[in-house]
């Protein structure tokens, strides 16, 4: 970044300031383009990994899936049907083609197209993952920010200890154990909520809560730490030296920086929700991707496992993309590190 010539005896002309640094609409467009390019790269890795998985298995996957009772002829027929007898390169490109066109092969166990099974399961998973995603943000941002305010500059030591204690405790319990404890209390004990499965709105409550508790605790911790750093920064000290009123100091000067700093670290936690659905669905016998994948792995239904891992992986990448794009819009500086 160059600086304009400002010899006072001279007219301020060339060399023209090249203050690009991601500023302006053109900068944002470039950033989005670069970020999408990176997404394509990650997707390619993901597709290659799920493709490679079936070839890294020891032994014949079809034999493993059909069991020892199947005759050699049946195994050979299935192997041919799945295209596993073609060359690796050939298989790879037809797999790629299939992924792009939505043809993810056929389940070994049920002989149904994988895409059909996924189509039936994805809405159920999203119906608990999306509310949990939104709730995590809605809960942890205000909690983290208010905790940062209450514990700033060494104040509120007791509040800080209590906050650390509670979030630490919540965070130490994994989501599937939360799910177990919650259903023991609210379903078995108090009989307030419906038994397992998807039976309308009330049956969403426990899975969503079990899913969001841990991530909300760790994200609100991160928000507090990042917000505290902002409050202790020199530019906040400078703003205080200008005696700005409370409203400007916190809402205009502190808040945008706190949110961008917190978001920077939230991608990992929010994408962790996707893994959480797998476990939580199994506790509640939820008809989503999570219950499907554990059954598919146990029954060695590899095309189905491939398909589900692909979708879950794509969801993770989508969350990272979303966080990065929001950051890129809110904070022009975050675009610089992307190249």
């Amino acid at each position: 970044m160059a600086e304009i010539a400002t010899l006072s005896v001279l007219p301020p002309t060339a060399p023209e300031d090249a203050s690009t640094a991601g500023g302006g609409a053109a900068g944002l467009a470039r950033f989005v383009a670069r970020r999408l390019l990176r997404l394509v790269g990650s997707l390619l890795v993901l597709v290659t990994a799920t493709f490679g998985m079936i070839h890294l298995l020891p032994g014949n996957p079809v034999r493993a899936a059909l069991g020892q009772d199947a005759t050699a002829a049946v195994v050979a027929a299935r192997t041919h049907q799945l295209g596993l007898d073609r060359t690796l390169v050939d298989q790879y490109f037809s797999y790629l083609h299939g992924v792009v066109t939505g043809n993810l092969g056929v389940s070994i166990v049920s002989s149904e197209p994988v895409s059909t099974i996924l189509g039936a399961r994805i809405p159920a998973t999203l119906s608990i993952a999306l509310p949990a995603f939104v709730l995590v943000l809605l809960v942890s941002l205000p909690i983290g920010l208010s905790m940062a305010l209450r514990t700033r500059h060494g104040r509120g030591e007791r509040t800080r200890v209590a906050f650390i204690g509670v979030t630490g405790l919540v965070n130490s319990v994994p989501d599937f154990v939360w799910a177990t404890l919650l259903s023991a209390v609210f379903v078995v004990g108090l009989k307030l909520l419906p038994v397992a499965g998807d039976a309308g709105f009330t049956s969403h409550i426990l899975p969503v809560v079990a899913l969001m508790l841990g991530p909300a605790a760790s994200l609100s911790r991160i928000v507090r730490v990042e917000a505290t750093k902002v409050l202790e920064s020199e530019y906040m000290q400078a703003a205080r030296s200008r005696r700005l009123p409370w409203r400007l100091l916190y809402l205009r000067h502190a808040l945008p920086n706190m949110i961008t700093a917190s978001l920077t670290f939230s991608g990992m936690i929010l994408s962790g929700l996707i893994a959480g659905t797998v476990l939580v669905e199994n506790v509640f016998a939820w008809p989503g991707l999570g219950t499907e994948i554990s059954q598919a792995v146990v029954s060695k239904d590899y095309p189905l496992v491939q398909g589900i891992l692909l979708i879950l992986g794509a969801m993770v990448l989508a969350i990272h993309l979303m966080v990065d794009l929001v950051l890129g819009i809110l904070d022009p500086r975050s675009r610089i590190g992307e190249s």
Partner: peptide
């Protein structure tokens, strides 16, 4: 007249000429 309001962090002038010419108090810009 010889005060330079430019900083060393600025990249030098490109092209074939003297790299200092855009900052120079006795150069072609003055």
């Amino acid at each position: 007249a010889e005060q330079l309001l430019l900083e060393s962090s600025q990249s030098p002038a490109g092209g074939a000429g003297c790299p200092f010419r855009s900052r120079c108090p006795v150069g072609p810009r003055v």
